[in-house]
């Protein structure tokens, strides 16, 4: 039996588009958008999501004072606030990959299970800098600059710290524009080099085992978004 395998130009082993979350600002309103990572910036294609996935936001002023901001449905949800930094939690709950595809259900409701996980995400958009913002705003997985990031230009390094429940999160994969750049150290710190001006999208992902009978893993993802001057 003879089977010839032709290699496809430019597609073999190419990474998939991943969904990405970001906050768009429209005056005093922030809009939580979801879309393909390769084009996940204002004006790009977006994907709908269940509005209940977006939780109550935390709005911080430059003094570090926090206030809650309710999510306004429908999708994409809106947050009416003026913040130095706005952090939004987002969870689509339990996911199970079966031999018949991936479904948004816990594994104990499915058959022929291949993998299962719970997804928890946080998106933080920073508008201004203050020393008070060197502290994490939440108990979730969160990326926090340890010094003013707004003065950085292409080629400079952003000095960041990753925390979970306010404590350093070590060993998390950090990415810049969706491309992995390294792991957070035991103190949760990592330096990421700025590649361009404009929108900066930094993300961290941390996987831990889950023992609740509904999924095998808990996948936490955090996004830090800020704007630098365009080149």
């Amino acid at each position: 039996m003879k089977i010839l395998v032709c290699v496809i130009l430019g597609l073999a082993f190419s990474p998939l588009l991943a969904h990405d979350l970001w906050l768009e600002r429209e005056g005093d309103v922030y809009v939580l958008q979801q879309g393909p990572r390769d084009s996940g910036h204002p004006g790009a294609a977006t994907l709908p999501y269940p509005p209940e996935a977006a939780g109550t936001g935390l709005c911080a002023d430059t003094a570090g004072n926090l206030r809650e901001v309710l999510a306004e449905p429908p999708s994409p949800v809106r947050y009416r606030a003026q913040c130095a930094a706005l952090l939004v939690p987002f969870s689509t709950g339990y996911w199970t990959k079966t031999v018949y595809g991936t479904v948004n259900r816990p594994k104990d409701t499915q058959q022929a299970v291949v993998a299962s996980w719970r997804s928890e995400e946080w998106v933080k958009r920073m508008e201004r800098w203050s020393e008070a913002l060197t502290r994490p705003l939440s108990q979730g997985l969160e990326i926090t600059p340890v010094e003013d990031p707004f003065g950085a230009r292409a080629g400079d390094k952003l000095r960041l710290r990753l925390t979970l429940a306010g404590r350093p999160a070590a060993g998390a994969t950090m990415a810049y524009d969706g491309r992995p750049r390294g792991l957070s150290d035991p103190d949760g710190r990592i330096n990421i080099r700025v590649r361009h001006g404009g929108t900066q999208s930094l993300s961290a992902s941390l996987e831990t085992p889950l023992d609740d009978g509904k999924a095998a893993r808990l996948i936490r993802t955090s996004v830090l978004q800020l704007e630098l001057p365009a080149p």
């Binding site: 089977i3 395998v5 496809i8 991943a18």
Partner: peptide, 11 residues
């Protein structure tokens, strides 16, 4: 028969 194989992977 001559076949083409496309492999899709996560990041």
């Amino acid at each position: 028969a001559p076949a083409t194989v496309v492999t899709l992977r996560y990041g």
